[in-house]
Write a protein that binds this DNA or RNA. Structure first.
Lengths: 343, 343
DNA sequence: TTGTAGGCGTTATCAT
DNA sequence: ATGATAACGCCTACAA
């Protein structure tokens, strides 16, 4: 029943003009203190709240950021939390849409958010996405867009992401230092940048240790526990099976771990495991799984900061690239016992 | 540079009136087919997109649902995914805000979403929240609101939630059936409904088996792995320590498990563990932890459906209450080996 | 079938 | 210091 009060109502009740009320509300300098006080008081009493829609329509900005993420698993939700924190601070509200790793859904989300007139976008692309027209359309309209985590060279925009190659490198090097020689990698989908970069790091480490990569030890599979499980089963069934596995996500690591246990092998003595993401889960399974931390929360914050900066800076910021450094957390799954190391 | 096209632009270029264009766009019956075609064609060419803001301002609805959740951990993000799915289907966009379990943040979120003129709310209250004025303000304005998961009798609204008492009951009864007698409970914060209901179920089960509840076995602590860890340490240090623990969340269960392992005790023979939520994590730790499934995804969908229904049904729906049934997933942590059961 | 005009709640420009 | 008025983009009586 309570139609929200408008400045019009206030004006009428106070016998002043609409514009005076508008000025008073926004604390303009050129308005009589008494009237200002009166307006404020009545506004309070009527529980007046400015209508954002009208405001937005007028100023052509909504103070809303559209965030499109592939999903809301642990990592992404930490990132979103980071975005949220910075955005709120800066006076922005965040609209989060999940693409569910679906290209079509991503397009729908983009259109919806565009229609909702968000002031800009912070996005991480779905693993299914190979064409980027929907995102380019955003840029053609000169709408600010920041790409984070899953970046792609096909999209020129300010970005923030992890140094994934470095992550792949330190993970692999750690295994090599522990004396493992036949190191398999469960990589992600082929077209996905983070997947390739992490694999590049893996390659680089092998090269540094003069180990020739064995194609049969390189497996591309979905970011998916089950796929990883089956892929690992195959690896373990090989005549010359690997003595270590590097999975590029924790979910995959869990799948690998289950396959290893099922086979009755022990970590890290029969086979070692190093993973990526460093979600809480890897520290509570037995044995704990070594994992590369990707600073999810920080990445979210960085993305939002970059976005805000871009908003205040209409200049061309397409070159800007924030790169976060990964950090390896070593646990039992990859620390060869002393005795074993010697043999 | 590309200012988005408006119906005005189209009208001008086609030498027709704005209203004709408006009608043509919305496929009104009373408009000449030729002009309609012309309008459509030009709209397509100019990449016209209706301005939602203007539309919303006019019709006083935004087709947006404000969702406020305490956090975005596994359970909640599944629920949000469920909400998202149904909402999208029904033509609504979802704005998700996290309160971070903070009362203040919840108030800020409410105000923001209210200002953004969302058509309604789907909320789950923060554990810190004891006063509900901010939510009641929503209701006073006759804005639809559905409460889900964490409901409270202090908030009269259509709700969807789990039968938490039943959940607590089946978890406890299962332990009793397995022969455990001194069953401790790690309950959540005292003012939280889900916490109390689950404990009620625990009590009910004890009563059914004629076991007098021991206050020293009932521990209230935060939904937090560390708290649970310390609480469990204390339980295990008791002279007559419990032979089973029921934790009302998986996160707490992990804490308890770690404390149990640290102490060198074995599950389920020295001590059993049953938990709540049935997140993927409990099935991959060793031993697997029995847990009560709460149907997160389904709950989200149900909440959104209820919301949509409420939108189409301005009647008083405050009485409506959707209750989902919990289901226990039994794993190793609570299945006493046959030998032990006999002794 | 098409056009005119008023209004949704605000702000901004120009007078007064 | 305050008021009148146009404009933001769209819809909808009402008129033609």
């Amino acid at each position: 029943m309570n139609k929200p009060a408008t400045i019009k109502d206030i004006a009428k009740q106070l016998n002043v003009s609409i514009s005076t009320v508008s000025r008073a509300m926004r604390n303009a300098p050129d308005v009589n203190n008494d009237t200002k006080a009166a307006v404020m008081a009545l506004a309070e009493e009527l529980n007046y709240q400015p209508n954002r829609l009208a405001l937005s329509l007028r100023q052509k900005q909504t103070h809303t950021i559209g965030v499109i993420v592939p999903n809301l698993d642990y990592v992404l939700s930490m990132m979103v939390k980071g975005i949220d924190e910075v955005a709120l601070e800066a006076g922005y509200t965040v609209m989060v849409c999940q693409s569910n790793e679906s290209f079509g859904r991503e397009i729908v989300n983009t259109r919806r958010l565009l229609e909702s007139l968000v002031d800009g976008f912070i996005i991480s692309v779905s693993s299914e996405t190979k064409s980027f027209e929907h995102f380019k359309k955003i840029q053609e309209r000169d709408i600010p867009m920041v790409v984070f985590d899953r970046v792609t060279p096909q999209l020129t925009a300010p970005t923030v992401h992890l140094d994934n190659e470095e992550g792949g490198f330190i993970a692999t090097e750690h295994l090599l230092e522990q004396g493992y020689k036949r190191i398999a990698i469960l990589a992600g989908p082929k077209n996905l940048g983070i997947s390739n970069s992490r694999m590049d790091g893996y390659m680089k480490a092998l090269k540094k240790y003069n180990i020739k990569p064995d194609p049969s030890l390189i497996i591309h599979c979905d970011f998916n526990q089950d796929y990883a499980y089956f892929a690992t089963e195959e690896l373990l069934a090989m005549k010359k099976r690997p003595d270590a596995i590097f999975t590029i996500s924790d979910r995959m690591a869990i799948g690998a771990m289950l396959a290893i246990k099922k086979k009755g092998l022990s970590m890290p003595d029969d086979i070692a495991l190093v993973s990526f993401n460093n979600e809480p889960i890897v520290s509570v399974v037995t044995p704990g799984i070594s994992s590369v931390d990707i600073q999810s929360f920080e990445m979210g914050k960085a993305a939002a900061k970059l976005f805000i900066e871009r908003m205040h800076h209409p200049d061309d910021m397409t070159g800007v690239e924030v790169v976060l450094k990964p950090k390896l957390f070593i646990r039992e799954s990859s620390q060869r016992s002393f005795v074993k190391k010697l043999r």
